[in-house]
Design a protein around this nucleic acid. Structure first.
Lengths: 221, 221
DNA sequence: GATAGTTTCATACAACTGTTTGAATTGCAA
DNA sequence: TTGCAATTCAAACAGTTGTATGAAACTATC
């Protein structure tokens, strides 16, 4: 077969450029110039621009998903089939956050690319993200086993909120840094994960009646 | 001055098209065709495509911001200068959620446009969003007055998480609906607001020592 | 070393984009 | 009506985009 040299040169250059400037501002000509290959090489090796983007995204995201499932498995084994809700949520948001946050200068091109992919939303990536639901179902199932007394709806909302906090933190870390005048340390990934997990756990395990009361009291206004 | 007929026709058509198909897929020619005006009218009335988008976004977002501040003011008056954390968060996330969620068929073009603006991220809109920080500071200040014993960092994270849950719910309501198999009722905007506010309040008012313990215990692993 | 298959290359293509131009038209004030 | 500004219009512009083509260069097999 081929030497794969050109192929990987394109992948690396594309990943870096997309990470730096976003999907909207990078053309195939930019990529091939950075990779020092011919313009036609992209279509020859990948078929189209969209397929190149898709390949970049899937290879990055299956790595994260594998890490997630791995941690989930470990947590379930440690709990004898029933992982603690804490460890489930940690397995859910930890890998993504660890992959995307951390000191700016230490971030790999791959991580900066994934941040871009989570901010901007281009068609080829959107398609792939839709397939992610099956992956999330595994976490929903684990949560169900962990908190069987909790209603399904509450569990789904808890899962959704945990992901929301993680993704928004990745997406908008700059705004939080500005808003808090640097008070919120976004380089402390471990601390951020702890915070998100703690809030999510509290949302899922708090006294249920208290919440219900609160809600109905609020609604009564 | 002018009749403004052309101007508003363009605004309406653009709002509707962007809402339906997103920013990437709508050209000026699509807009002028839908508005039944001449192509040059956009540049004549707005200067450029980006300025048209910006005008659409600001007019929608100042409406939401005004509503937010209005509710905040009411809450502070009701509390004699110190609004409850509950009502502050409600003023923060309520207007946005009410504007963007609810039964699909009842959504206005303006609300669908704002959903798009929150999913896709185009340069003219990004610029405007950066100015939103001053607006958020007012809520941070209100939260500080409401929970003076809480650390600033905790307050900023709480504010950030509340917005995260609200925005992600708007952005990804479809995924949650699919994941939960329709179990999570995304038409019940009031219920969603209650949930987000309840979780945020719990995150901000829970026993502080418990959280600190939890965090240090988690870190010890 | 000839051959067949793979890969690279320069170049052209075709379509689409936002913007500009200058003339035609309209609407209003004198 | 006349004159002047505001608005509309058809047309063209200038640039960019992803993709296709066919010849050239390379590589490995026999």
């Amino acid at each position: 077969m081929a030497s794969d040299q050109t192929r990987t040169a394109i992948l690396n250059a594309a990943e870096r450029l997309y990470a730096e400037r976003g999907f909207g501002d990078v053309t195939l000509r930019d990529i091939v110039a950075a990779a020092d290959v011919n313009l036609a090489a992209v279509n020859y090796h990948f078929g189209s621009k969209d397929e190149l983007i898709a390949e970049l995204f899937v290879s990055s995201s299956i790595a994260t998903n594998r890490e997630r499932l791995n941690q989930l498995k470990l947590a379930e084994e440690a709990g004898g089939g029933r992982a603690s809700i804490d460890s489930i949520l940690r397995a859910l948001v930890g890998p993504t956050l660890r992959g995307c946050l951390g000191p700016e200068r230490e971030r790999s091109a791959a991580s900066r690319f994934m941040i871009r992919a989570s901010i901007e939303s281009v068609p080829p990536i959107r398609k792939i993200k839709n397939r992610e639901i099956d992956h999330l179902r595994k976490f929903a199932a684990a949560m169900r086993r962990s908190l069987p007394e909790r209603s399904e709806v509450d569990l789904y909302w808890g899962l959704h909120f945990a992901l929301a906090m993680a993704h928004q933190t990745i997406r908008d870390s700059e705004r939080l840094a500005k808003l808090s005048d640097g008070l919120c340390d976004l380089n402390d990934v471990g601390g951020i994960i702890d915070r998100i997990v703690a809030v999510s756990v509290k949302a899922l395990t708090g006294d249920q009646r208290k919440i219900a009361d609160k809600i109905s009291a609020q609604r009564a206004r």
